[in-house]
Design a protein around this nucleic acid. Structure first.
Lengths: 342, 342
DNA sequence: ATGAAAGCGCTAACAC
DNA sequence: GTGTTAGCGCTTTCAT
C-alpha cells in the first residue's frame, strides 16, 4: 500500500514512538537494549511498511559496504563463470554482495574497474587472472583494500591472499606423459605469450624435454589466443605446412578443443594418430565428444577458498597460509591412448 | 605515500583552504562556480592524495547509488554469461556498476537476491529468466525500482522494460521444418515444464502438429533439466526403450548437445538417420562438432537493449517501446540435412 | 566565485 | 531498556 520508495529509520521510530537508536537495535538484531514488547511493535511496523534498511547509509556510518568486487578478463569466456560462481557462493553465505567487472585483458580497463570498486568502497577485491603490472598493483595497495588473487602470483606484498595452479609442474606433467609415451615431436600450442601463466607453462614444456634429454624444436611452438577458433586455425596450419609432429599439448583447453575438432574433421584419428592434452579442465572439456585429456585444477574450489580467506582478512582474523599454490593433475580422457599405469 | 585508506572531501578542503562545497564542485566537474585557479589547486591535491570520492556517501546524499542489480539463475550455466556481458558492457558505458546474484531457479533465493539489491539501493534491476510468480513480483514493485526483464513476459505492469524471444513461434519453426521434411514422430525434449518458456515452446510444438494435421504422440514428449548430461540420459532412454522416432527437437541447446553426442556414440548417424534441432543458440552450439542446428536469438544484443532501455527509465527519459518480443530464427547447421529452400 | 549549513539514513558512544 | 547526540562523507540550497 506504500506510496513511498522506502522508509527511513526515523519514520519507523516516529510511528512507534521510540527513538531511532531503538529501531537501529531492532534491525540489527541487537539482543541487548530493547524490550520484548517494544521490539515486537517495531518489528511489526517494519513488516507492514516493507521497510528495508539502507545499506549505503549503513556503509558510510560503519565504513563497511558489505560488497566485494570481482574483476575477471571476461565473464563470457568459458573459463570464468565457474570461478565467479565459487566466489559468489562463498560471499553469499557471508552476506556479501558481489560487484563484477570485465577487463578484457586490458590493464587500463582493469585499473578502471579496480578504481571504480574503490569508489564503491568494497570491503575486498578478488582479482582473477589480472593483467596489471606490479607497479600499478603496488600503487593500488595504497588504498588498503583486502585483495585476493586467483590464478596469478606476485610477491606476497601485492595481495593479502592468493591461489594459483603450478603452471610449470602442470605443463611438465603433460610433456612428461607424452615423452614417456615415446613422443619426440610434441607441438606446444599456447595463447598470449606475454601472460605470466603462458611463460610458466612454456618453461614446464622445456624443462620436461631437458630432463628427458630430448631437444625442443622451436617450430613446434605456436602462439595465438585462448579460443576454440584459434585452435582450429592452428590445426589447419600444422596440416597445411605439413609439420612433422606426433602429439600436441596446449596452454588452454579452448585451443585444444579447436585443434581436436579440426584434426578430426581432417581425418586425423585421435588418439590413435595424434594424442592431445589441454590445460585447465574447463567444464566444456568434460562434456564434449571426445572428452579432452587435460591438466586439471579445481577452479570452483580454488575460487571459493580464496574468497573465504579474503573474508578472514576483512574480519581481521588470522590467515595462516595466505598464499597457496596447488599442483594440477593430469586427467586422462579420450584424446590420449589408454595405457598401463607407470 | 599515504597512510590513510582514503581521504574525505573535508580534508581536501582544509588542505586547500576552500570549503567542502568547492571541492564537491570540482570532483563533480561542475563547470560553474569555481575559479580556474582554485580548481587547479584542488585538482592537484586530489591527484597527490589519490583521493577517490565515496560513492556510498554520494549515494545517500543523492539517492542514486550508481549500481544496478542483475539476477540470473546461474552465472556458470552456459546460457547466461553472454547475457551478463551484454548488460555489463552497456552499463559500464553509462558509468554504472553491476551487482550480480544467482537464484538457482529457486523463487526463494531469487527473492533474497532481489531484496538484497533493494537494500543496496540499486538504481535498477535486470531480472533474467526470473522464476518469481507474479504475486511476488507485483509485491516487489512497491519498491519502485526500475525493472528490466529478459527472457520472460508478464503483464507489462510487472516490469518497466522487457524483451523476450517468441518461444511459441520458435518451437513452431523447428517443428514445421521437421514436419515438412516428412518427419512424423518428432521427439520433444524439454527441461523444467513449470517454467513459462517451456510451456510456450510446448505449445509451439503442438500447434505445428495441429496445423499440419498430424497427431502428437505423448510418449515422445520428454522432460528433464537444462543440461548436457540430461540430454545424454534422454538419448539413452530413447534407445533403450526402443522408442520409435524420426527426429528430435529440444527446448534447450544443452539438452540437444547431450542427445547428439550420445546418439553419435551409439552409432546413430546425424543427420542421416536422425535430425536434431536445439533451442537458444548458445555459443557452445556453434563451436562443437557437429555444429548444432538450432533456434537462434541474439542474446547479447537483447540483453544490451533491455539494459539500455532500463537506463532510460532510470533517467526518466521516455521509452517508446518498452516491451519487445523478437522472433527467433532457425539456424541450420550440421545436425539437420541439407535440403533445398522451400 | 565561494562558503555556511542543513540534511541524506544510519551507527555508536554515552547518558539516564 | 531507551533516548540523545554526534558523526560518517557527500550534495545542495541559499547567502555573500
Amino acid at each position: 500500500m506504500a506510496e513511498k520508495l522506502t522508509y527511513s529509520i526515523a519514520e519507523i521510530a516516529a510511528m512507534c514512538n521510540v527513538s531511532k537508536a531503538t529501531v537501529s537495535r531492532v534491525i540489527n538484531n541487537n539482543p541487548q537494549g530493547v524490550g520484548k514488547e517494544t521490539r515486537a511493535r517495531v518489528l511489526k511496523t517494519i513488516q507492514q511498511l516493507n521497510y528495508r534498511p539502507n545499506a549505503l547509509a549503513r556503509g558510510v556510518a560503519t565504513s563497511r559496504s558489505g560488497m566485494i568486487g570481482v574483476v575477471v578478463p571476461d565473464v563470457s569466456n568459458f573459463f570464468y563463470p565457474k570461478l565467479i560462481r565459487g566466489i559468489t557462493d562463498c560471499m553469499d553465505k557471508k552476506g556479501y554482495s558481489v560487484i563484477i567487472g570485465n577487463s578484457d585483458y586490458d590493464p587500463k580497463r582493469e585499473a578502471e574497474q579496480l578504481l571504480s570498486m574503490i569508489d564503491k568502497r568494497v570491503d575486498g577485491i578478488m582479482l582473477c587472472s589480472g593483467v596489471s603490472n606490479r607497479e600499478f598493483l603496488s600503487e593500488f595497495r595504497k588504498y588498503h583494500v583486502p585483495m585476493g588473487l586467483v590464478g596469478r602470483v606476485f610477491d606476497s606484498s601485492l595481495s593479502d591472499v592468493s591461489i594459483t595452479g603450478d603452471n610449470i609442474k602442470g605443463a611438465m606433467k603433460s610433456a612428461e606423459y607424452l615423452i614417456q609415451s615415446g613422443k619426440r615431436r610434441i607441438v606446444y600450442a599456447e595463447g598470449n605469450p606475454d601472460i605470466s601463466g603462458s611463460r610458466q607453462r612454456m618453461e614446464g614444456y622445456r624443462k620436461a624435454h631437458e630432463a628427458a634429454g630430448i631437444p625442443v624444436h622451436e617450430e613446434l611452438i605456436l602462439h595465438g589466443e585462448y579460443s576454440i577458433d584459434c585452435g582450429r586455425y592452428m590445426a589447419m596450419q600444422l596440416l597445411e605446412n605439413k609439420v612433422d609432429f606426433d602429439a600436441i599439448m596446449t596452454g588452454s583447453d579452448l585451443i585444444a578443443i579447436g585443434i581436436v575438432f579440426q584434426l578430426l574433421k581432417s581425418g586425423v584419428r585421435i588418439p590413435e594418430d595424434i594424442e592431445v592434452i589441454g590445460f585447465d579442465d574447463i567444464e566444456l572439456s568434460r562434456v564434449i565428444d571426445p572428452p579432452l585429456s587435460t591438466i586439471s585444477k579445481p577452479h570452483y574450489d580454488m575460487a571459493w577458498h580464496v574468497a573465504d580467506q579474503l573474508f578472514k582478512v576483512i574480519q581481521g582474523d588470522p590467515v595462516p597460509l595466505p598464499h597457496a599454490t596447488i599442483e594440477p593433475q593430469l586427467v586422462l580422457r579420450a584424446t590420449t591412448k589408454k595405457r598401463r599405469e607407470t
